[in-house]
Design a protein around this nucleic acid. Structure first.
Lengths: 120, 120
DNA sequence: ACCTTACGAAACCATTCGGTTGCACTTGAC
DNA sequence: GTCAAGTGCAACCGAATGGTTTCGTAAGGT
C-alpha cells in the first residue's frame, strides 16, 4: 500500500460525479446553469428550499468539478463545467456499443425475414 | 391532490435510475451482467460483501427496471436491460449539444486566427 | 461609519443508505 | 422424506444525506 498513491487519489477524487447527479435538485441546478452563470440566490429562487441548501448542493457540484465559480464583487456566479459531463458519456460508451450491436442484429434478422418472404 | 394520480406515479417511478447508478458497487454489477446473465451468488463472488448485500442492490436495480430476472430452477439469472440505459443517454443529449456547439465555436475561432495569420 | 446584501460554515435533525445477521421458502439431489 | 443449495426478506446498525436555523464575514450603498 503506497501512502502517496492514496493521498493523490483522495485529492483527485473528492466526490463521485455519479453521486453528484443522483439528486434531482442537483440535476435541476445543472440544467439551470448550463446556459448561463447564476448566483446562489438566483438559483434558489427556482426551488422550494433555502439558499443554504442550494449552497450545499453547489459545494458538492464544485467538489467534483462539475461546476465552476467566478466571484464578481459580493456575488459569486456558478456555471457548468460542461467538459466534466463527458465523463458520464465516456462511461455510457461501453453500453452504447452493446445496444448498437443489438440494433445491427435486429436489422440483420429483419433483413433475413424479408429475404425469406421474397423467396416464398 | 388526486389519490389515483399519486398511486400511478408511485407505480411508475419506483426508483430513480440516477440514484441507482450512483453507487459504485451497483455500477460494477451492471458492468458484470452487461454481457451475460448471472446469478446473485456468482455476482457476489466478485465483491467483498455478502450475497444479501448484492441481493439488495439487485432489488434496487430491478425496481428501476435496469435489470431483468429469469428463473431457472432454483437459480435466478439477472441480466442488464440495456434499453433502460438509453434514458441516461437521452438526459445527456441536452448537454452533448452544448459541448458540440463549443467545439464548433472553437473551430471557428481557430479558423479565424489562421486566416488572420495568413493575411499578415 | 453604518446598514444591507450576498454568501459560506457550523450545528443540528430526521431520513435514507449500504451493510450484516438471522430466518423462511423453494428447488434439486440423494 | 430428508438434506443441501440458492435465494429473498426483515430487523438491526452505523454512516451518510438533504434539509433547516443560526452565525460570521466580506462587499456595496447610504
Amino acid at each position: 500500500m503506497q501512502p502517496f498513491g492514496c493521498i493523490l487519489v483522495f485529492l483527485a477524487m473528492k466526490r463521485d460525479i455519479f453521486q453528484a447527479i443522483a439528486d434531482p435538485t442537483r440535476r435541476a441546478i445543472i440544467a439551470l446553469i448550463a446556459l448561463q452563470a447564476m448566483t446562489p440566490n438566483a438559483i434558489a429562487e427556482n426551488f422550494h428550499t433555502t439558499r443554504q441548501a442550494v449552497s450545499k448542493h453547489l459545494r458538492i457540484l464544485t467538489e467534483c468539478e462539475l461546476v465552476r465559480q467566478e466571484q464578481k464583487g459580493r456575488e459569486i456566479y456558478y456555471s457548468l463545467e460542461i467538459e466534466k459531463m463527458k465523463e458520464i458519456d465516456e462511461w455510457l460508451e461501453q453500453y452504447r456499443k452493446i445496444w448498437e450491436t443489438r440494433y445491427e442484429q435486429l436489422d440483420e434478422m429483419l433483413a433475413t425475414i424479408k429475404k425469406q418472404k421474397e423467396e416464398n
